[in-house]
């Protein structure tokens, strides 16, 4: 084991802490203003829980938040699974590798508005009714490269002889995958999944076009509500979403740790 101090470079710690502060400053502002009594997200008056109460009385905002979580969760799981398989297929060189990889990353380079309008036209041409299902399918499409890139980058650096040795040791590929490949890839799979989740949770344009009755997500709601201004109600639901996400992820982490120990 290499001693940890070797890895430490001067000032990286200080820079990192500053960056963390930079990342959390707006979040702090957001949370503080969700307790603002005034119907304004920019002028502070006094402390109040009123806006959290308002959320309880606003079914549109509740459905939107729930839809967002459903869509992001399903899209992340599917996209990460597809991306993992794709990464395993592409890390060894083969004829046409560059083309396949380029294709996988294509959703990244397309302006979203274009894919959005085109996807809408596709669904219509196929006669598919717009709803939560169409939103999820569309999200899987643009989440794939976000999950794929970290996994692929990690596979690149993995010791390939390790995988080969595993192939010789275990009877079937499923065992290799479960006992060797997946544990080795796990950090990358996790960061890929987290990226995909974030991207899906934040998507607005695509969702806007392919959503049908009852499938409005939170970003869509917020984007169109913002004409009049960000209300503390929106800040409050964002804070709640943050809390829910954190609880979910901590739970998943905890379960993962327990699974590993067994």
């Amino acid at each position: 084991m290499i001693s940890l101090h070797l890895k430490k470079l001067p000032a990286t710690r200080e820079v990192s802490l500053l960056i963390l502060a930079y990342l959390y400053l707006p979040i702090l502002v957001l949370i503080v203003y969700s307790f603002n009594a005034n119907r304004s997200a920019t002028v502070w008056t006094e402390f109040s829980f009123a806006w959290y109460g308002r959320i309880l009385a606003n079914p549109s905002i509740q459905t939107a938040a729930l839809n967002s979580i459903i869509v992001a969760t399903i899209a992340t799981v599917c996209a990460t699974a597809i991306a993992l398989l794709a990464a395993l297929a592409t890390y060894r060189p083969f004829y046409g590798q560059k083309m396949v990889e380029g294709g996988i990353n294509l959703p990244l380079i397309l302006p979203e508005i274009v894919t959005a309008v085109a996807t809408l036209l596709l669904f219509m041409a196929l006669g598919i009714k717009l709803g939560l299902m169409t939103v999820i399918v569309a999200h899987i499409g643009f989440c794939i490269p976000f999950a794929y890139l970290p996994i692929r980058a990690r596979l690149n650096d993995l010791d390939k002889s390790l995988l080969e040795a595993a192939n010789d040791l275990y009877a079937n590929p499923w065992q290799v995958f479960r006992r060797v490949t997946l544990p080795l890839l796990w950090p990358a799979v996790l960061s890929g999944a987290v990226l995909a989740f974030v991207v899906s949770l934040d998507d607005f344009i695509m969702t806007f076009f392919v959503a049908g009755p009852g499938s409005t997500t939170l970003p869509v709601y917020i984007f169109s509500a913002i004409k009049a201004g960000v209300t503390p109600e929106i800040n409050a639901i964002s804070t709640l979403m943050l809390v829910i996400s954190i609880v979910l992820v901590v739970l998943a982490f905890w379960l993962g740790q327990r699974g590993k120990q067994q």
Partner: peptide, 12 residues
């Protein structure tokens, strides 16, 4: 075209 209410009310 966003935040029109606050923009006037906050005196921005």
């Amino acid at each position: 075209s966003d935040n029109t209410v606050d923009r006037m009310a906050s005196g921005e």
